[in-house]
């Protein structure tokens, strides 16, 4: 096989792995948008906050230490214990649930029936607020996330491909793990929404609020539930990203990567978010490899996704699998 093609295959595979991450972030958006019509600008910050919380709990950091020390003149920073990774993750799930409850109680409940733009603005406010809380709670320094995920080049793939093609593919173990975890998460979500009582209620609310109310579904309960699930999705995305490049504020910018994915996949389609994420992940890597780096001076990943999404918008505004746009009366 010619070298160029092998390179391209390796690049595409790596793109696929990055795409999984984009898909996860986009999924968080889709869930909330479907259930409540809110475009949650805070999704990226939620990922950051969740990742910081995992690290903080794991290392036994005292939350709001700076604040406490400033008020009481103390010098506490750590409890002096370490929490096992799994424990820290489970506790973070609870924290994300609490966050969902508070957001619903303090913000969303009071904005029912408001214009989408007002809800969107509220989530912008929420994003900055949460960023501040994260900072205050866990400190602004860059943190290293170590929850025992395998890292480094996968030797097996390297060897097998070398024996097959005479060229070894470099695929990171972390990317493989992330893809597997993402696949499990998505499968679990699909099973949940298809077969459980709460899942059915969730689909009902996503379809029609009035009808959902009339069969005895509490919209507030569903909103807390869906924000909690979005929080868990953010947690997974934040941990994967954090394990790769450290937990820092730029992590919240992964939300920007999700936007073109949503334009491609449609704002209300879960399969759309997944396929859209993969297309953009692969597309931007291949474009950079084939055209960007050789002819355009590189770094095309920064804008390629948006151009692709805009082209798509022109020809198929409802997205890949997006539902027909129907005016609700």
């Amino acid at each position: 096989m010619p070298d160029q093609l092998l390179f391209a295959m390796e690049v595409a595979l790596n793109g696929l792995m990055a795409g999984v991450m984009y898909a996860l972030v986009a999924l968080g958006f889709v869930l909330i948008f479907k259930a409540s019509g809110i475009f949650n600008y805070a999704q990226g910050v939620m990922a950051l906050f969740a990742a910081m919380t995992v690290v903080g709990i794991q290392k036994g950091q005292v939350p709001f230490a700076h604040l406490i020390n400033a008020i009481f003149g103390t010098h506490i920073h750590y409890f002096g214990w370490n929490v096992p990774a799994l424990g820290a993750i489970l506790l973070t799930v609870i924290v994300m649930g609490l966050f969902a409850w508070v957001v619903n109680k303090l913000v969303l409940k009071h904005l029912v029936n408001q214009e989408p733009i007002i809800l969107f603005m509220a989530t912008i406010g929420l994003a900055y607020f949460l960023e501040g809380v994260a900072d205050l709670m866990w400190g602004a320094d860059i943190k290293k996330l170590d929850v025992g995920l395998p890292q480094g080049i996968n030797g097996y793939i390297d060897e097998t491909t070398f024996n097959l093609f005479g060229y070894g593919f470099f695929i990171d173990n972390l990317d493989i793990t992330a893809s597997v975890i993402a696949a499990i998460l998505v499968t679990a979500l699909v099973l949940f929404s298809q077969y459980t009582k709460q899942g059915r209620a969730l689909r009902a609310v996503a379809d029609d609020h009035q009808a959902a109310l009339s069969v005895g579904i509490s919209l507030n309960f569903i909103w807390v539930l869906v924000w909690t699930i979005a929080g868990c999705v953010a947690l997974v995305a934040g941990m994967m990203w954090g394990a790769k490049s450290g937990v820092q504020f730029s992590l919240s910018l992964i939300a920007l990567k999700a936007l073109p994915v949503l334009m491609l996949g449609g704002f209300t389609s879960i399969p759309g978010a997944i396929v859209g994420g993969l297309i953009i992940g692969v597309g931007e890597q291949l474009f950079e490899f084939a055209i960007g780096a050789p002819y355009l001076g590189g770094a095309t990943q920064n804008w390629f996704a948006y151009v692709l999404a805009l082209l798509f918008l022109v020809f198929r505004p409802q997205g890949l699998f997006g539902e027909k746009i129907i005016e609700r009366v």
Partner: peptide
């Protein structure tokens, strides 16, 4: 609704994306 009062709407409020079976099934949620 949970007190045992069910209703239909003048302008029909169904779950358009679900099958007939699933729509009726939502009536059983409680």
């Amino acid at each position: 609704a949970r007190q045992g009062i069910a209703r239909t709407f003048q302008n029909i409020a169904l779950f358009e994306g679900m099958s007939v079976l699933d729509n009726i099934m939502t009536g059983r949620l409680n």
